[in-house]
Simulated scan of single mutants.
Amino acid sequence: MFFRLIDGLNELIGRVISVVAIVFAAIIIYDVFMRYAMNEPTRWAFDVTKMMYGFYFVLLGGYALRHQAHVRVDLVTEALSPAKRRIVEALGYLIFFFPFAWVFMTRSYEFAMRSYMQGETTYGSVQLPVYPLKMAMAVAAALLMLQGISEFLKLIFDYREDVPNGA
């Protein structure tokens, strides 16, 4: 039940956030059209697309982990039996993943709160607030941590599922 809840949350967020790619592509096309066809460049498009790409990139971490789309070095584990491979992967979560995810989550939250309290904005000609993107980093870190817990528990309980290839 816990696995499906966390996996479902990251699946839903991944699918919703993937639409952002279409939106920022449309904004880039609009900006190029306005710049070269109408000779009226936008002042806001670059900052908006840069921030949207940031949302897109960071919020898909949990989704990527759910679909095992992250970088792996299987040189050590490919020769191991499935039981030993699970042990090595579980140790990897304990030694590397969870400390990284914890630092990412706590530091990005502090980073976002500082940005919000200062009213931080971009430096461009249109000053957009930066804190939403920084808050997205904290949310992304929490989603990554939750997905990591789900994956770790799946290893511990030898839970196997067929992950859809919608990644």
Rank of each mutant, 00 (worst) to 15 (best):
M1K: 14
F2Y: 10
R4Y: 11
D7A: 11
D7T: 04
G8V: 08
N10P: 03
L12C: 09
I17D: 06
I17E: 09
S18R: 11
A21H: 07
I22A: 15
A25G: 10
A26I: 00
Y30V: 00
M34K: 05
M34H: 11
M38D: 13
M38H: 07
M38R: 15
P41M: 05
D47M: 02
T49A: 07
G54M: 03
F55T: 02
G61L: 12
G62F: 02
A64S: 08
R66C: 01
Q68H: 14
Q68K: 15
A69R: 09
A69Y: 00
V71F: 09
E78M: 12
L80C: 07
L80T: 00
E89L: 11
A90M: 12
L91K: 13
Y93L: 03
Y93R: 03
F96P: 06
F98S: 02
P99E: 04
P99L: 09
F100M: 09
S108E: 12
Y109R: 10
E110P: 00
A112H: 01
Y116C: 07
G119Q: 11
Y123E: 15
Y123R: 14
P129V: 13
V130W: 04
L133F: 13
K134F: 09
M135W: 14
M137C: 13
M137R: 00
A138C: 10
A140R: 01
A140G: 01
A142Y: 05
M145T: 11
I149G: 07
I149L: 11
D158N: 15
D162H: 10
N165V: 10
